[in-house]
């Protein structure tokens, strides 16, 4: 049995939005201490890795490790039915073939007096559409709760079932790496740079020197360059630009994929870029204290 409740269900909505254009199918791997997703895009150029720690959920139970294979587009369609303020509970049986998703609105709790409810449950003289009748229709189980002083009646609860699938996931082992360059910057600013650079070309060079981080693109229209300098003392944490550099690094990447990564911008105010010569870049969006979504992108190499 797996069951996890996220008060801020919006995180789950945004996570699926952030990966569904990149990967079609993936496994949600559930364990004692986290739920995680690792999947590559079809052309094996990029990889997305999600981790949400169990401590970030307000209820988390996972009796044994489970892999829940899902279609990202379909899950995205269902999650669109959840409001941004809804809490989302995920539930799956150990040997089930579906994932149940329960959406609860922020003001769903209503307290009803047991006696009043008991009359309603017996089908008494409640006029149609009255509060009592509504309770009765929504959850008949309350009739079994005799002897309990109060009832919590849930008016606004939606339950969806997503069909699961068996997915042969091709997992990659990603070694712990000390990167030569770590850049932390506002996620919105990174998104704007990627969007603007795409107008000019399809390959972005990211070059980190003492001067700062230079994003450059060359195309038929012309060239574009944006220089970001360290700004570690900005008033707000999220406006800070912090650059740690052991040695200068310059790499080039396909803008098309970087653009997919920026779909995660809403998940947090900050993005962290990790680079070393001749290895994939890591574009990480921390998700509060809950976890992260990381994207890996293989560089383009000069022939």
């Amino acid at each position: 049995m797996f069951e996890a409740r996220l008060t801020s269900g919006k995180i789950l909505k945004q996570l699926i939005e952030a990966l569904k254009d990149l990967v079609q199918e993936a496994n949600i791997d559930c364990s004692d201490d986290e739920i995680s997703i690792q999947a590559m895009d079809n052309s094996h150029v990029s990889l997305v890795a999600v981790s949400l720690r169990s401590g970030g959920f307000d209820h988390f139970r996972c009796d044994r490790p489970l892999s829940l294979g899902f279609n990202a587009t379909n899950m995205g369609k269902i999650l669109k039915c959840a409001g941004n303020e809804d809490a989302i509970t995920l539930k799956a049986e150990d040997d089930g073939d579906s994932l149940s998703m329960v959406f609860e609105g922020p003001n769903q709790d209503r307290i009803a007096d047991f006696g009043e409810f008991a009359r309603g449950a017996r089908g008494s003289d409640s006029p149609p559409g009255s509060r009592r009748e509504k309770c009765w229709k929504i959850d008949f189980n309350f009739a079994t709760m005799r002897g309990v002083g109060v009832l919590v009646v849930i008016f606004d609860r939606k339950i969806y079932e997503l069909k699961l699938m068996d997915i042969d996931s091709e997992q990659l082992g990603i070694p712990d790496t000390d990167y030569k360059v770590t850049i932390q910057m506002p996620s919105g600013e990174f998104q704007r740079i990627i969007r603007d650079m795409q107008v000019l070309g399809d390959t972005l060079s990211i070059s980190c020197t003492k001067e700062g981080v230079k994003f450059g693109v060359q195309g038929d229209l012309g060239t574009g360059n944006v220089l970001i300098r360290q700004n570690a003392h900005a008033e707000k944490d999220e406006d800070r630009v912090m650059i740690e550099m052991e040695e200068p690094v310059e790499l080039t990447f396909a803008l098309r994929y970087l653009n997919f990564f920026t779909k995660a911008t809403n998940l947090g105010p900050t993005v962290i870029l990790n680079m070393s010569p001749d290895v994939p870049i890591v574009v990480e969006y921390p998700i509060g204290e809950t976890g992260h979504i990381k994207y890996y992108l293989a560089p383009k190499i000069d022939e």
Binding site: V45, Q171, V279, Y296, D302
Partner: peptide, 14 residues
Amino acid sequence: TSTQTRLESYFMRY
């Protein structure tokens, strides 16, 4: 000209 590399060139599959 530059060539797009694949992730398997850097990470082991398991």
